[in-house]
Structure formats: structure tokens, C-alpha cells
Design a binder for these strands. Structure first.
Length: 108
DNA sequence: TTAATGACCTATC
DNA sequence: CGATAGGCCATTA
């Protein structure tokens, strides 16, 4: 069991219309300092289509500059299609679509 | 084993 | 607001 596996499991748990940050995933994975490792894990992305890497954005909501899906626009379109709201800066509205780390329907 | 890499984050100027 | 510097960790060659 490598850290990548954990990261993949968490990324796969991100519901539609929501986005998570690298730091958040790292924290959910167990250590808050795996943000870099998270990026590396998604970089290899061994199983695209299964891992919604397009739902992972930076802390400020900006998309990855060197995206490997076919361009930044691709990711933006996918997120918009899922219902993620964007700002005028081409950044994700974290206030509205930031994943709290819980599954749907689980609001304490 | 050592060295190098990276889709990050925070702090400072 | 933009740019710069440093730290942190696992994975790979």
C-alpha cells in the first residue's frame, strides 16, 4: 500500500460538482505535507477516467497550468459540466464547490 | 544508497 | 497583485 493508493482512493471519493485541493487530499490521506506527493500521484495518473483528477485544484482554486487532459480548457469544461461554478479569473469558486471532505448527505 | 524530480503550500518583499 | 525563497515528502532512476 503506497501513499499513491491512498491518494487515489480519496480523489475517487470526490463527489460531482465539488473540487478538492491538494493540501486537503494530503490531509485526508494522513499527512498534511503530502501536497507535493499528491501532485506527483496525479501526475502519473495510472488509471485516467477512474480518477477524477480534474476535480483537484490548487489552494486558490486555480487549475493546473500543465494539465495533461488536453488543455486547461478541457478541465474547465469538465468541471462546468459537473456543475462547478467558476469565477471571472478562470478559478473555481471554492466557497461554493470546495469539497468539505465528507460524502453527500453527511453534514454534521 | 545517493541524488534528483515534482499537477504544492506558506511566508515575505 | 506579482514575484521570490524555502520547506516538506514519497517515488523513480
Amino acid at each position: 500500500m503506497t501513499v499513491f493508493e491512498k491518494i487515489y482512493e480519496i480523489v475517487k471519493q470526490i463527489p460531482e460538482g465539488k473540487v478538492a485541493t491538494y493540501g486537503m487530499i494530503a490531509q485526508l490521506a494522513g499527512n498534511p505535507r503530502w501536497a507535493r506527493v499528491v501532485g506527483y500521484a496525479l501526475h502519473v495518473n495510472p488509471e485516467p477516467g477512474v480518477i477524477p483528477c480534474h476535480r483537484v485544484v490548487s489552494r486558490t482554486g486555480s487549475l493546473s497550468p500543465a494539465f495533461a487532459f488536453g488543455g486547461e480548457n478541457r478541465q474547465k469544461q469538465l468541471l462546468l459540466k459537473e456543475g462547478v461554478s467558476f469565477q471571472e479569473d478562470d478559478k473555481v469558486n471554492l466557497e461554493r464547490c470546495l469539497w468539505n471532505g465528507l460524502k453527500e448527505g453527511e453534514t454534521p
